[in-house]
Design a protein around this nucleic acid. Structure first.
Lengths: 200, 200
DNA sequence: ACCTGAACACCGTTCAAGT
DNA sequence: ACCTGAACACCGTTCAAGT
């Protein structure tokens, strides 16, 4: 259980960034403290500034790390799924929501959209995800404009769900229960269902 | 344009809280600095601690202020609307989204859900709003369990929309345009529309 | 009861001096 | 090239002393 104060193996950016990401996961952006991390890594604050220009610089490196592994996982998911778009959407919804409720970093970032650096990362991630959804809805037979609107609604619902999972988990049907499945089915039914008469 | 450094009119909690709320509106929670506010109010940091035990205490007072005026406005809105639940929902959606995109404080709080104090306020607001939606869907003829699910989806979509308005407004149809109306209509259609065959 | 001004603690940042 | 340790800046908090 003791922290690792080893015989100083000459630290690099990567190690600091990993430690910072772990700190974000535990306590959010505010937990990224140069002083605290230096102690954890058995070095000094002064040493830190040889690898990074800034605390912001460190945050940027940590967020890059997260973005890489995170978006990689999403791509694998969609690629490895069935050919059927409806099935892909169902899988995406289930897995993506599960991840959002588990990956503490994602939640922390949503909760710190304040920070300009975080905002930049979230923008990139948002654009990529809307694109995935957009294509799915088009393959489901929706016209371009309608597909965009549905993608937007789907992603809004996803974001809001993540937010609720973060702030008020008690109002959500618990993950892994029948109630959760029923809820997910309703959401998917609402998202992919036929448009109102006026549109057809 | 100069800040008001008047002949010191003996400050009270209210004045500090209002100033703090203004600071949140401008720059988020991090903009609430005891030192900066003291300067703005033409007094000293030491004086601050005669009215508040803490910076947290000040934040709490500011959030209380916001919560009061904010929830008051929502109640007025629903009360003054038509009797027709579908019409009430449409009005609620339009106004509530419009407010979310304008009220900087609401956005800032969403972006600082990190803070335990903010989390508490958001929980209360969430519960109240889910309740309003829940009742609306029941009056629209949905069974209790279905109404709860639809309220949850509606509120998730609302939260996600607010989040996007904050982080990536460019992906949203601009407020006040035809595209926005079309989008809102789609969302409402999806939310209130009949359930899939398996449910009926 | 309310305020001031100086002090302290904490942490990001800088820098001269070491290997 | 990388590290240390001391210094400084900033801001939250405390407190003795004033009115």
């Amino acid at each position: 259980m003791a922290a690792g104060t080893r015989p100083r193996p000459r630290l690099d950016r990567r190690t600091w960034a990993e430690q910072a990401l772990a700190a974000i996961s535990r306590g959010g952006l505010r937990a990224v403290s140069v002083e605290a991390l230096a102690v954890q890594l058995g070095t000094t604050k002064g040493s830190f500034y040889h690898h990074f220009t800034d605390r912001q610089d460190l945050l940027g490196a940590a967020l890059d790390l997260w973005e890489q592994t995170h978006t990689g996982a999403v791509h694998e998911l969609v690629a490895g799924a069935s050919e059927e778009p409806a099935e892909q959407l169902r899988l995406l919804a289930r897995e993506t929501v599960r991840t959002a409720e588990r990956d503490p970093v994602g939640l922390r970032l949503l909760a710190s959209a304040d920070d300009p650096l975080v905002a930049t990362v979230l923008e990139r991630v948002t654009a990529a995800r809307l694109d995935v959804l957009n294509r799915l809805f088009r393959r489901l037979g929706h016209r371009p404009a309608d597909a965009r609107r549905r993608a937007l609604l789907a992603y809004s619902a996803y974001l809001g769900h993540a937010q609720l999972a973060h702030s008020t988990p008690s109002v959500l049907p618990p993950p892994g229960t029948a109630a959760r499945t029923v809820y997910l089915d309703l959401v998917l039914d609402r998202l992919v269902g036929p448009a109102a008469p006026s549109d057809g």
